[in-house]
Every structure is written in structure tokens, then in C-alpha cells.
């Protein structure tokens, strides 16, 4: 099923993005042992869209993000980013597993924020953000630091550039992690339950930053979250997962107000 087709007619297209297909999953299967987490999954995301994945735990949402970030490889099917294979390449007319170089070339369009922040504890905040732009993108130290300080200001942590990650609260660490991902100027930002590890009073600050990014940039977002109000706020489209399949998709209004599927209703009743 093409999850995107349901909702695209209901939205005003954002003129800042061309709306072309950015991500396509084609019959993607992922198994862990005998457990099939994703089952012949087809779906696509258009450029500039904010897509939220919801569903019970174990339904395969996070696996989708991890496949896109190449933290794991699919057992079947293909993933395309900007029309190019992510973990495969074509050699002599045949589709073969891609080498590190090809994967890195495609992967540079993708950024990710993790549930547990995963900041580098051996680097101060500023260097957490500048390290990859300098050594991966080849920015000069000055350029990278200027970019990092702008981003730190944006996430409200302009004064913590010289702190170590362990000296920050969870919410602050997560905001640094968001800045770190954005410093690579990705086309797509993957958000993997980014508030689940936070104390309740710190959640709002992180969500505000993400709302701000959703409003003020044309970055594509793929978001796994249990924060349904946030999902309703920022999403163009919501995908409901169950047992490795998308069972329902549509605009947040439709999914949250008048879900068609019983399973969706049950899930929303349980979490809302």
C-alpha cells in the first residue's frame, strides 16, 4: 500500500519543497530469528513531509528507522532514498549488497536522533556537534563552530557549548543531539522515541524544539513517538503499524478522530 496517497490530496503542498518521493520501501522484510518484524512492507515518504509512525511496541516502527539509518540490513526487499538504492547497488545489471562507500554516499542525506541521546561522552558539547561536519563534510573548524553555535542557540543551549554531556540534564542532552544531527544538514531527520527516556518535566522543551524545526525548515521528518499530541501537531501523515504492517494511514485528524481500523481504535484508547 502506498501510505502517502491517502493524505496527499488533503494537504496544501509546501512551496518550499518539491514534494518528490524521497524514501521508498519496496517489499522490505526484516526478521529477528523466527520473529518477522517487518513483512513485505511497502511505503513511501515525499520530500518535506512530517510522518509519524505509531503502533504498539514490537510492531516494527523503530526497525524502519534503523533500516533507513543502515544500523541494520533488510532480509528482503529494497530501500531507495532520492531514487537510489540505500543498501544495494547495481553491478553488471545485477542488484548486489552495497559497499561502504556507496552506503555512505546515500546515508549522508539522513540524520537520526536516538531515544538515549547517544552523545559522545569524550567530547564537549561543541565538539559533539562540530566533529562530524569537520571530519565527514570537510568544513573548516571556524565554519563548523559557527554552525554549531547557531544550532545551540536554536535549541536554547547557547551557553553550554563547553560542558561535557554528563553535566547536562537528559532534556539538554537530547537538544544537543538534535543540534548535532542538524549540523550535518540532512534531508531527512529520523526521530526514534526521542522523549521516551526523559523525565516528564523535560519532555516539553524537547518537543518545542522539534515543533520549531518542523515549522521553520523544510526538512523531512520520520518520527516514532508515543506523544500523541505532538504527533497530531506536527504530522502531515500518521502511519499506524501492527505486526510489521501498516494497517492504516492518513492525516492526523483522520487517524486520531475517526480511525477506521479496530486495532487503531484500541491502540489509541490505550495510549490517549
Amino acid at each position: 500500500m502506498s501510505a502517502d496517497s491517502n493524505s496527499s490530496s488533503q494537504e496544501t503542498p509546501n512551496p518550499a519543497v518539491d514534494g518528490s518521493e524521497l524514501i521508498r520501501f519496496d517489499k522490505v522484510t526484516k526478521r529477528f530469528g523466527s520473529n518477522t518484524v517487518l513483512d513485505n512492507l511497502d511505503f513511501s515518504v515525499n520530500s518535506g513531509k512530517h510522518v509519524t509512525l505509531i503502533g504498539p511496541s514490537g510492531s516494527g516502527k523503530t526497525t524502519i528507522l534503523r533500516l533507513l539509518m543502515t544500523l541494520m540490513k533488510p532480509d528482503g526487499g529494497t530501500i531507495k532514498v532520492n531514487g537510489e538504492y540505500l543498501t544495494h547497488e547495481v553491478k553488471d545489471g545485477k542488484l548486489v549488497p552495497a559497499g561502504e562507500k556507496h552506503i555512505r554516499e546515500i546515508r549522508k542525506n539522513i540524520g537520526m536522533v536516538f531515544q538515549q541521546f547517544n552523545l559522545f561522552p569524550n567530547m564537549k558539547v561543541l565538539r559533539n556537534i562540530t566533529e562530524a561536519p569537520i571530519s565527514v563534510l570537510g568544513l573548516s573548524k571556524d565554519e563548523a563552530e559557527e554552525r554549531a553555535r547557531e544550532l545551540l542557540d536554536m535549541v536554547g543551549l547557547g551557553d553550554r557549548a563547553d560542558a561535557y554531556p554528563t553535566q547536562l540534564s537528559g532534556g539538554q542532552q537530547q537538544r544537543v543531539a538534535i543540534a548535532r544531527a542538524l549540523a550535518m544538514r540532512p534531508q531527512v531527520l529520523l526521530l526514534d522515541e526521542v522523549t521516551s527516556a526523559l523525565d516528564p518535566e523535560l519532555v516539553a522543551g524537547v518537543l518545542d524544539v522539534l515543533r520549531d524545526i518542523a515549522r521553520s525548515t523544510d526538512i523531512t521528518m520520520l518520527c516514532v513517538t508515543h506523544e500523541m499530541n505532538f504527533a497530531r501537531d506536527i504530522s502531515d501523515q500518521v502511519l499506524m503499524f501492527d505486526s510489521g504492517r501498516i494497517i492504516e494511514s492518513g492525516s492526523p485528524d483522520k487517524i486520531f478522530s475517526e480511525p477506521e481500523h479496530d486495532r487503531t481504535r484500541e491502540f489509541l484508547n490505550a495510549v490517549l
Binding site: 544500523l71 546515508r107 540524520g111 536516538f114 547517544n118 562530524a132 571530519s135 565527514v136 544531527a181
Partner: peptide
């Protein structure tokens, strides 16, 4: 392993 994954997400080479 999460540190390695953060490194992959920032597109570092394995050597970096």
C-alpha cells in the same frame, strides 16, 4: 553499541 550507531548516523567512516 549505541556509540557506534551514533557514529554511523553521523556518517563517519569506520576508521574515524
Amino acid at each position: 553499541a549505541a556509540q557506534r550507531e551514533a557514529g554511523i548516523a553521523l556518517n563517519f567512516t569506520p576508521m574515524q
